[in-house]
Nucleic acid binder design. Structure first.
Length: 423
DNA sequence: GCTGATGCGTC
DNA sequence: GTCGGAC
DNA sequence: GTCCGACGACGCATCAGC
């Protein structure tokens, strides 16, 4: 028996009404326990306001403008109700609920249909994401319209929130990890660790549902499955960075480019962007470079690509952007806007996770693995003046500034902490 | 073919 | 990427 | 301290409409 989408909508409604975290976690825990294996990942994604898992390349391509048109059509003359509800609540979902309630009579025919289920909603999202080619815009609209017209007002509220990515229930990913740990009776740390590796809490939950604890303990890095990035906080100046890192730290050039995660398995190489989308196609020379230089069978590396001019000097970020989403004319743009790669971290090497190794050790391993690929210029020092000078050098060479990396810092995927500071 | 609207993704 | 707010 | 949402500039792809 498939769980109705209404149950998920009611759950979200409860989450929205409270700000008590323990309460939120316990209602979600109870909900997760009711789901069948197939429903777990879709439900977890939807509760977090996402139509698909985080790493999925699928996108709905439905924005606010498109949705507005559809809702107008579905609710006919009651548009004023929407505007008023929207200005009162400031919440698109609530306004949609109000207008759906007001226009029930117009939508009578649909009330006889069977209730929507979570799985049907997921399948509908898949169809919407798949639409492409001539006529796809209209097809997408029709699919969204069909989905919404099968929905009760409360369901419509949350469908719309998921469609445009504005869940705002206050139930974020960290709390979901807690709920998953409770629902499947495993330690929170194990769930967090698996989420780092798989990049998506929904997938972790699904894994627990089908394979239990054992499956969870087997989770490790998988080449070609991108890992969430470690992020930096800001520091005012080099002194603050030194102080924060206990007197001594590693400064690295911070480049005005795009951060990439490089996965290699034999001759196969794939490149992922910051948001973990696959950008391999846009950067053919990086693929070749990695194939040629990286001295490892399997590896997950991190670096920054920047655009350079004919003399190899850094160009403004906009030039790099012209390479990124490009599908056509890649070869020509490749000649016009060359890119360079600077590596700065290694997370995984030949079957071994390195994220618990300290920064200095990872950097050492990286230097032994990277062949002729340059690493980000580095200065390990406890001297503020030397650091200042290094910063000036970076800026003079046209780069953005410096990063400061704690020498004994491990790699914490998805976390923005003080182990890395940008200056 | 060209142009505008729309959505997405980078920083 | 930045900022400010909520907890 | 940590998380989230709102914000902005820029460039590209895709489709619709001419």
């Amino acid at each position: 028996m498939e769980i109705p989408f209404m149950a998920l909508a009611e759950l979200c409604e409860k989450l929205e009404e409270t700000s008590k975290r323990n309460l939120m976690v316990s209602v979600v825990t109870a909900f997760l326990e009711r789901l069948s294996p197939d429903e777990v990942e879709p439900a977890v994604s939807m509760i977090l306001g996402r139509p698909f898992p985080r790493w999925s390349p699928r996108v709905l391509d439905v924005g606010w403008t498109t949705l507005t048109k559809i809702i107008r059509r579905l609710t006919k003359t009651n548009w004023k109700v929407f505007s008023q509800a929207f200005s009162e609540t400031g919440d698109v979902g609530s306004a949609v609920k109000a207008v759906f309630e007001a226009s029930k009579p117009y939508r009578q025919a649909t009330l006889l249909e069977k209730p929507l289920t979570i799985m049907e909603v997921r399948r509908s999202f898949e169809s919407i994401a798949e639409a492409s080619g001539a006529g796809s815009r209209e097809k997408r609209e029709r699919l969204v319209e069909a989905l919404l017209s099968a929905a009760e007002p409360l369901e419509a509220k949350y469908l719309v929130k998921i469609l445009i990515g504005e869940m705002r229930t206050g139930f974020h990913e960290g709390l979901m990890e807690l709920a998953v740990a409770k629902a499947f009776h495993v330690p929170l740390e194990d769930v967090q660790r698996a989420c780092m590796m798989l990049g998506d809490v929904g997938e972790v939950a699904a894994l627990l549902k089908t394979g239990g604890k054992e499956a969870l303990s087997k989770v490790g890095f998988r080449v070609f499955r991108p890992v969430r990035l470690m992020m930096a906080q800001t520091a005012e100046n080099v002194e603050e960075a030194l102080r924060e890192h206990g007197g001594e730290t590693a400064f690295e050039y911070k480049f005005d480019g795009a951060r990439i995660q490089i996965h290699k398995d034999g001759a196969a190489v794939r490149i992922f962007s910051r948001r973990l989308t696959d950008v391999t196609q846009s950067l053919p020379e990086i693929v070749e470079l990695v194939q040629r230089e990286v001295k490892a069978e399997k590896a997950i590396l991190e670096g920054e690509v920047i655009a350079v001019d004919a003399d190899g000097k850094p160009m403004a970020f906009q030039h790099l952007m012209r390479r990124f989403k490009r599908v056509r004319g890649i070869e020509e743009t490749r000649r016009r806007i060359p890119v360079r790669l600077f590596l700065f971290d290694v997370l995984y090497l030949n079957g071994q996770s390195l994220i618990h190794e300290p920064y200095v050790e990872r950097r050492r391993i990286l230097s032994e693995t990277s062949g002729e690929i340059p690493l980000a210029n580095q200065l390990v020092t406890r001297n503020a003046q030397a650091a200042e000078q290094f910063l000036k050098m970076a800026l003079d060479e046209g780069h953005e500034g410096l990063m400061a990396k704690r020498l004994d810092g491990d790699y914490t995927p998805g976390i923005r902490g003080k182990k890395w500071l940008k200056i």
